[in-house]
Amino acid sequence: MFFNSLKGKFEVLRPVLLAAFSCALVFCIGDVSPLSAAGNDRFEKRFPVGANPTVIVTNDNGVVTVRGTPRNEVHVVATKRSSSVEIDTEAMGNRLRFDTHLFEKNMKPQERTVDYVLEVPEKTSLEIHNVGGRVRVDGVNGGLSIDALNSSIELNDIHGSMILRSVSGNMSVARSSGRIEANSISGDLQFTDLSSQSVDGSTTSGNISFEGNFYDNGRYTLSNYSGFIDIATPADSSFELDARSVKGSVQSEIPLKSKAHTPFNPTIMRQSLLGIYNDGAASVHLSSFSGKIRIRKK
């Protein structure tokens, strides 16, 4: 009677048990991690490296996130949304390369998407090519080059040279030092609290904002064709200003003096403004074809 009762319960539970067994089987046969309901596939690997490694990431579409760590290893986690995409890795000594390889042409953006999360040694030389999506890098100090089409770029706490190129993505750089070259066609540029002594930012139809101090003997060149250039700098900043516009306007809300140290009124809208603030220790060149340039106190 006991077994009859058990058999009865088993008959009822059989479909449930079968489903559970199937899931467990898939879990055991599957790759590093089980496939999610959305069909994502995850690739994860660790590479021990020596000092000052070079890491190159080439991706079509997705979010690339890189963080500097004190460890001597490169830890990569890549999540892809389609089986028509693979991640090619190449490790040659201290040089690592991760490429997203598409098996088919004209795939939809979602199918082409691969998101990378990398942890790299702080003194890594980093090169990223990302067509669409977003790139974010924090705390890497070995030199950085980012090339993007429709991808935004966000850099925080970077110390080392930065060469940034984007066609239509916005760029922001904060709390960083080292030489910065940022070029975009239609993206906005935002610079905040930099310790850099050399900043060269250019966009065609985007806006540029610079908030923070200018450093002694530094050279800051910002230019666009339209849009605004907005400079917010603290009262103890010291710079020589050369601001010009062909068809736009230049306005300063901070007191400037001419090289002859005669104060003049800089608040009137004009198309060029040359003057010195405090001791004129840094050199600031702002130019816009038809946009508005504004300099104000932070």
Partner: peptide, 27 residues
């Protein structure tokens, strides 16, 4: 041969530059 969405972004940005070339030339 490019993906249509990428082609569109590049065409838009080339058109932006052409617009400013015309404006600058006029200036």
């Amino acid at each position: 041969q490019m993906d249509p969405s990428l082609k569109s972004i590049l065409e838009d940005n080339l058109a932006t530059i052409d617009y400013y070339i015309d404006k600058c030339r006029e200036s």
